[in-house]
């Protein structure tokens, strides 16, 4: 019988990413409720020494698939190996981060295993012994609660929604190497090049703070006031659809229904009126600040704190205050 919670612990170049720790923390909680074990699977190349950090998240076992053909992510290669691990270990729940990699990989794994998958969960609970996932639909205009009827029950977790918490006591962790000697020859789609987008700003979906600009920015150049504030706060820069459609910002910066859905601790919306399309992508932020000339702008309905005024006066003043605070 299927038993246990298995988490796909995503790493890139030997470094585990935040969403992996968030998934492990939830995995630990669910395993505790079910009175079962938490395990993690790690795929990569030359990664044996990196799994130590997973012990801090209370895993009972780590399954390591270490092979040259797993050095770079490929959908087919990772799906083959991870599905094999799931089949062998037979967990009842499989959790993966809804990162770029997880979003690409999880459905392919679900197809391998002929099981159901709940993507982009924002809450997970156990109900009658089964996993019940809550996820936004219609870009967050509604939520659905969903069971997976088959085993294993798969779910991906939206980044930044869950916290990552280590355990204080030390725990015995069993580390096991998984046989991955074959499979490379079956991979047809391969990454031949990676182009870094450059810049030191955090990733939009992983950022704690996001400063976004909208139609009120007026042109591409004026986004420098947004960038200045973002850099003072160590924040990511976002944009509304109208700013992206006007060509002021690239599409990867777009927040909203046809862009990214984000859940930072603080979202600062500058010159954004708050079209339903945009609100869908950011209204799960913990705190929202709105700066807008129009006191009737819908963005003020969702904002925790609002300032009515010209963003070109308010935003630079805010940047100065942040810098002053940091210098103090």
């Amino acid at each position: 019988m299927a038993n246990g919670v298995l988490v796909f612990a995503e790493q890139r170049d030997g470094v585990f990413r935040g969403p992996a720790f968030e998934a492990l923390t939830q995995g630990r909680r669910l395993a505790g409720q079910l009175g079962t074990d938490l395990s993690a699977a790690v795929l990569g190349s030359g990664i044996a020494g990196t799994v130590e950090v997973l012990k801090e998240y209370g895993v009972d076992a780590v399954f390591v698939a270490d092979s040259e053909h797993l050095a770079r992510y490929t959908t087919e290669g990772y799906a083959d190996v991870f599905s094999k691990i799931v089949r062998e270990k037979n967990p009842s729940i499989v959790l993966m981060p809804a990162s770029s990699l997880g979003r690409d990989l999880a459905p392919r794994v679900a197809a391998h295993l002929e099981t159901g998958l709940i993507t982009e969960c924002t809450a997970l609970e156990i109900s009658d012994g089964r996993l019940l996932g809550t996820r936004p639909v219609y870009a967050g205009k509604a939520l659905i609660k969903t069971f997976v009827k088959t085993d294993p029950q798969m779910a991906t977790l939206r980044p930044k929604v869950f916290s990552a918490e280590t355990i204080s006591e030390s725990k015995e962790t069993h580390v096991e190497q998984v046989d991955v000697t074959t499979g490379a020859e079956r991979i047809r789609a391969k990454v031949i090049e990676f182009q870094s987008s450059g810049g030191d700003r955090p990733e939009l979906t992983e950022a704690d703070i996001i400063v976004s600009g909208g139609r009120g920015m007026g042109n591409a150049d004026s986004f420098n006031v947004i960038e200045d504030l973002a850099d003072a706060l160590g924040a990511a820069v976002g944009a509304s659809r109208s700013a992206v459609d006007a060509g002021w910002r690239p599409h990867p910066d777009q927040v909203g229904q046809t862009g990214k859905t984000v859940s930072p601790s603080l979202y600062i919306a500058c010159g954004i009126s708050g079209a339903i399309q945009h609100l869908a992508g950011m209204s799960s932020s913990k705190y929202i600040v709105a700066i807008n000339k129009n006191p009737d702008a819908p963005i003020f309905k969702v904002a925790t704190y609002g300032i009515v005024g010209d963003l070109f006066e308010v935003v630079p003043a805010l940047t100065e205050e942040v810098k002053k605070l940091q210098a103090a």
Binding site: A110, E114, T115, G116, L117, I118, L132, P136, V137, G140, K141, A142, L143, I144, K145, T146, F147, V148, K149, T150, S283, S284
Partner: peptide, 11 residues
């Protein structure tokens, strides 16, 4: 069918 939606609600 692999999944079962039991409820839809407003956020």
């Amino acid at each position: 069918f692999k999944i079962e939606v039991i409820e839809m609600l407003k956020p």
